[in-house]
Design a protein around this nucleic acid. Structure first.
Length: 152
DNA sequence: GCCAACGTTGGC
DNA sequence: GCCAACGTTGGC
């Protein structure tokens, strides 16, 4: 099993939203690298750290898991929506996604500051300067360490 | 194919 | 609100 970190702005979609709906298609990702992770590398059952970005403070708040195989992001075909891609067709989709399902909430947020302060976690991609990618792979050792640090 | 301009992300 | 980082766009 591989591990990941997925970012979401809590004002848009928070860990509480995921808990409420149970399962959510990860729509709107329009970055090729992030798409490739969902399309080609994620497998059902992979677990992801759920990260609140653009939050005060930012940090990891829970765990989600890949709920099924990748499929075309339906929002790319919606001409009225903000994620419409005129170059994409159902026969030749450009954007792919997976659904994530709620696994659990951390007892307390593991803040970005706390991640950076931990010698083992400071190497995580999310801790690196200028990292904007919304989906990143996480080493299994880092995943375990983060859960342990958060008391989960 | 180069690269300057532009847009977005996201911490601070 | 600022701005560093960096991906994308488009003129040439």
């Amino acid at each position: 099993m591989r591990h990941w970190l997925i970012k979401s702005e809590p004002d848009v979609f928070s860990i509480d939203d995921l808990e409420r709906v149970g399962r959510e298609p990860w729509t709107g990702v329009r970055n090729y690298q992030a798409r490739n992770f969902m399309w080609r590398e994620m497998k059902p059952g992979d677990q992801a750290l759920f990260y609140h970005s653009n939050a005060k403070p930012p940090g990891i708040v829970g765990v989600a898991q890949v709920a099924g195989a990748a499929y075309p992001d339906p929002t790319q075909f919606d001409a009225a929506g903000e994620y419409f891609d005129p170059a994409a067709t159902p026969a030749k989709p450009r954007w792919w996604l997976v659904d994530f399902e709620f696994v659990g909430k951390l007892p307390a947020m593991l803040t970005l500051d706390a991640l950076k302060a931990d010698p083992q976690l400071a190497e995580m991609t999310v801790c690196q300067r200028g990292t904007r990618l919304s989906i990143t792979p996480v080493a299994s050792a880092h995943f375990k360490r983060a859960c342990r640090l958060a008391g989960w």
